[in-house]
């Protein structure tokens, strides 16, 4: 009897574990919520606007008074290899460190388990050249985008970091440049493709709310291939001047974990 009980128990255990491994039944015809969290950090510290004190790559201490950037064009790859591209019109987000409601863009994607996430830092050239009536929400030049737009050289600012450092002029680094309208010019758009398998795939299912938690290390935007020195220059306001920062920030976003 004891043996039988043990067997039954084992079988039950096996069955239930099988069921668990089998994961939820995904219905790819149904869309569910997925959020992608952009958690801004400075090296190994959480970013605290204004109050936090940090040190750059050349030993200057600094604080950050403003941090804003666009993310767009999200693409997710299912573990079965299928690819889902979030419709472009729903896919522009402005992450603003001073506004916690912007940290976790919400996407609506088909149920499934996803192994890879890709997105663009910036506003792609197509949207950058679209009719004004397509520039709504975070792209509205009279609202959210008012300080994220270059009027003199039509185009969005992709990434903006400002702050102060003792003894030098406040730094203002504004990076944009979508590659030009009629002439090929500087392109500071950067695409991030993050493999989620090591630190947790995203299980997207109705009634649940999976969250892909990313760390955005803004220290990397000002250190790295080019170590920015505050004060020289104090400000960056053009596509070409922004190239070193764009090159730096192309490695600033990593996948930390996924909350399923």
């Amino acid at each position: 009897m004891k043996r039988i009980i043990l067997s039954v128990f084992s079988i039950t255990l096996l069955l239930s574990s099988c069921k668990k491994d089998d994961a939820p039944n995904y219905n790819s015809n149904v869309k569910a919520d997925l959020s992608v969290e952009f958690d801004n950090v400075v090296g190994s510290s959480n970013l605290q606007l204004n109050t936090g004190s940090y040190t750059n790559g050349v030993g200057q201490s600094f604080n950050v008074t403003k941090l804003k950037y666009y993310v767009s064009n999200f693409v997710l790859t299912n573990v079965d290899g299928s690819v889902y591209t979030v419709p472009q019109k729903d896919c522009y987000f402005l992450i603003d460190e001073s506004d916690a409601t912007t940290y976790k863009p919400k996407l609506s994607i088909p149920e499934g388990e996803y192994k890879s996430l890709s997105f663009v830092l910036g506003v792609d050239s197509l949207r950058n050249t679209m009719d004004i009536n397509q520039r709504t929400g975070v792209l509205d030049v009279s609202a959210a985008a008012a300080d994220m737009y270059w009027s003199w050289n039509s185009g969005y600012i992709f990434f903006k970091i400002e702050g102060t450092s003792p003894g030098v002029a406040p730094f203002k680094y504004h990076v944009g440049g979508f590659g030009g309208y009629t002439t090929a010019t500087t392109n500071n758009l950067r695409t991030f493709t993050l493999d989620l398998r090591t630190r947790g795939t995203a299980q997207v299912k109705s009634g649940k709310s999976a969250n892909i938690h990313l760390f955005v290390d803004v220290l990397k935007a000002i250190t790295g291939t080019t170590n920015m020195t505050f004060g020289t220059p104090a400000e960056i306001h053009s596509p070409t001047a922004g190239i070193p920062i764009a090159n730096n920030y192309s490695s600033m976003i990593v996948h930390d974990h996924t909350e399923n």
Binding site: T129, D131, I132, V141, Y149, S151, W152, N153, S154, Y181, T182
Partner: peptide, 16 residues
């Protein structure tokens, strides 16, 4: 020629 669409032109003098 920094501005590519007349609809975006007015923003420049208004905000300059």
């Amino acid at each position: 020629g920094g501005i590519v669409d007349l609809d975006l032109q007015s923003i420049a003098p208004i905000t300059n």
